[in-house]
Amino acid sequence: MDFLRPTTWADALAAKAERPEATPIQGGTDVMVEINLDKGRPAALLDLNPVAELRDWSSEDGWLRIGAGVSYTRLIDELGDRLPGLAQASRTVGSPQIRNRGTVAGNLGAASPAGDSHPPLLASDALVEAESVRGSRLIPIGEFYLGVKRNALEPDELIRAVRVPYADGPQYFSKIGTRNAMVIAVCSFAVALHPSRRGVGTGIGSAAPTPRRAPEAEEFLAGELDWDGRTAVPDETARRFGELVARAASPIDDVRGTRDYRVHALAVMARRTLGWAWTEYRGI
């Protein structure tokens, strides 16, 4: 196994172009687990840690551009106020040590359906900034996940950054685990209210081959909410929203949970997160 260690972004892109089979590694919280479990052995590791520019974030036109090397801990501390949904999800990742190392970009690179950052990224219409020696492109998050641990990156591309719009309304993330910390999601859900366009964003985790949105639920809820009057959401609407979210999932039975439980829990989480989001929107 070769170990490539570029020190600049340009060198990293060149290395990836030359060795497209190389696996990028940043925090190593996913890649090293796979290697330690002997699940496939990359021909080469491309260590991005020395690439300083990846550790920066910036803000422009109401969007945050989060470098691929920004850890969960920094995201929570430095950007939590502008990205509450993503910060809440980041807070549930592993242990403090893992959050010090792990990154959202790493989550995207691994593209596990159980990755914690996917649902809030979906709910807030994030963009993945992918780059290669051929150039740079922005991939809408909804088009990024292709299958279990498969994403839309080309073999020569690396994730440069994740672009997320500032929260324009309440955002909530909720995740089921069978212990109260440090657990991989049995299933998870994120909701984001977008009052500026009277829209609703959703994201479902660990309940389908890929993270996915619940478009029917989004559309239904956006039409039902009393955006101007801010009156309470009728129970029936909340329940229907939960049902539609659950219906958007296609979970399986596995070692972490059953299909039936996941469907049930998604409906509950959708209903509850909506309740918290709407309460916050109403300002009570």
Partner: peptide
């Protein structure tokens, strides 16, 4: 949240 079922994974604010 750390004192509630589900912990910081925020499955409840007291509901249920």
């Amino acid at each position: 949240l750390r004192a509630l079922p589900g912990g910081v994974a925020q499955t409840t604010h007291g509901e249920g």
